[in-house]
Design a binder for these strands. Sequence first.
DNA 1: CTAGGAGCTTGAGTCGGCTCTAGGTCAACC
DNA 2: GGTTGACCTAGAGCCGACTCAAGCTCCTAG
Lengths: 153, 153
Amino acid sequence: MAEVTASLSIGQIAERTGLSVHTLRFYEQEGLFVSPVRRGPGGRRSYTQDDVDWLTVCIILRTSGMPLPALRRYTDLVREGAGNEEERLALLREHHGRVTSQIDRLTQSLDLITFKVGVYEDLLEQDRRAAGPGRRRPSGGGDVPASRPGTSA
Amino acid sequence: MAEVTASLSIGQIAERTGLSVHTLRFYEQEGLFVSPVRRGPGGRRSYTQDDVDWLTVCIILRTSGMPLPALRRYTDLVREGAGNEEERLALLREHHGRVTSQIDRLTQSLDLITFKVGVYEDLLEQDRRAAGPGRRRPSGGGDVPASRPGTSA
DNA sequence: CTAGGAGCTTGAGTCGGCTCTAGGTCAACC
DNA sequence: GGTTGACCTAGAGCCGACTCAAGCTCCTAG
């Protein structure tokens, strides 16, 4: 209850965000910090919890595929302060669209992959069954013949 | 009903797969074709419908994030023919995992993004309401103050 | 017969996003 | 007072996945 905005070193930030110190300096250079990073004695970067919080947002946006330029733009808008909420909203909506369509694409792809996994599982299961009685390796493959890609899954 | 495995030019393949001719040659070089691409008169590449089908699978795997080396490996296995189904299955399962966890990550990120979109929508809605009676731009921003990242969404 | 267009090869270039190197400062410890 | 170890800067390097350029060969149409 009495934390007075403790200042954190780049190493500590790296630790709690999972980003490397390299990446942190790189992000700074790319303008991804809302407020300029302060410097402590010896010119060392000194961060606050707010920076960690902001980076957390950045990481989520980045890992969900927001390109650095968009993230930079968003950061700029936040830094500018009140008055540009429409543009922030537009940026976020655009990204929202990107992410949903990416999820859709992945979900579709997953269908095919799941189907193929099923095909190979069945195939190997049959193999195993046939292995008891005499025969061995009776299968003919699962891919080239297994299915016309667009046709089934 | 009487198509006799018509042979297709690289341009036609580009057209029907959406890949560029550059990319098709690049993929060939990367070993992503199950059977070596035949050549027609003048050394021109000549493809079949099977190639298109295979590329369709490749595209799905690629766009769902399978790295080229994995795709190459998978192609190698298919080319080798029957007998390595376990490994194919393992590869597909690994990718299946990649894709599902990617979908999970994206879905989580989407939560935050959706939340933020909501915040800004509300904020602008309030603005608009306040704009009828006297006041203008009463908001204080939506991001730096709007929410502690981890706290709400 | 020549101009255009599609293909060919080899190899270089691009882009996004980091990641690392070299060479230096500083404070702390033994 | 020497050696860590964390940090600094500027700039180069890397990786994945394309993408393009240069210079050539064909074929076809006008």
